[in-house]
Amino acid sequence: MLIGTLLVSSFVIYSALYLAPGNPIATLTGGRTPSPEAVRILEERYHLNDPFLVRYWDWLTGVLHGDFGVSIPLRQDVSTLIAERIGITLGLVVYAAIIILILGIGAGILAALRPGLIDSSVIVASTISAALPSFIAAIVLLLVFSVQLGWFPAFGPGEAGLDRIYHLTLPAIALALASLAIVSRVTRACVREELRREHVQTATSRGIPRHLVIRRHVLRNAAIPITTVAGLTIASLIALSAVVERAFALNGLGAYLIQAALSKDFAVVQGIALVLVVAFVVTNTVIDILYALLDPRVKLGERAS
């Protein structure tokens, strides 16, 4: 199933861009009319005359060996271009995921267990952040924390290490905010629901201390739906990171994908799109596996729906 989806996706990505209007020779020669001899050499070098399926097969086997082809406008290996940028995107998404998991689930649990002031403030905060699209959140964060307070840099990924984390903080928050709201609201609802379950009463009736009842029965059981929702939300960040990278001028995969789409650099678009789709599909598969591991009623391979 996973392999099938990935194969078909790769085919869709490759063929869509293959069928796109436009002539790579024109791109290569920068608009000048090349001699027939030059055209022949170029066609040979970039295998432009091979049949479609052969070219797809070459591309696919290349990708499996880590070779994503050559960017015609840049005359550079796409693999190198991707490798240079993947770290920033990965860092951004992981950073945002950590924020979502810790703050979102934490706030949701707290709100469910402590009705009253804490609960109400979590609801208000999540209602506000749920309404903030990432790129608008980015603008607001830039305005407040970079321009007015000067606490965080406005642009760029910084140097690797702590400086990178510092530079990625605002982008990660912008990316996480809306998902944070979804996850905390779902967590709150699930924990509430589980607290009311009969089996929780059974545990209480046996004199099990409350914190153990909460941990072993309430949170353990609520973890099943929470994992699914949090996982799906985090998976959706992979594509959304492109927007945030653009907002904060981070040269990650997403920002580069956008740039390549604008300049019609198809080899780069194909390569990065495939990487993002694979990441998205694999993340979703991991969520399915986690779901089956957490819930003994579900057998691996059955669809969690």
């Binding site: 379950r197 009969e198 089996h199 009463q201 059974t202 545990a203 209480t204 009736s205 046996r206 004199g207 072993r216 029965h217 353990r220 059981n221 099943i224 957490l294 819930d295 003994p296 009623r297």
Partner: peptide, 20 residues
Amino acid sequence: YRRRIAMVFQDPRAHVNPVR
């Protein structure tokens, strides 16, 4: 005190944690 009493409920399916 609760350890000195025990309860058997009407619906065992609902009263036993399904994931343990």
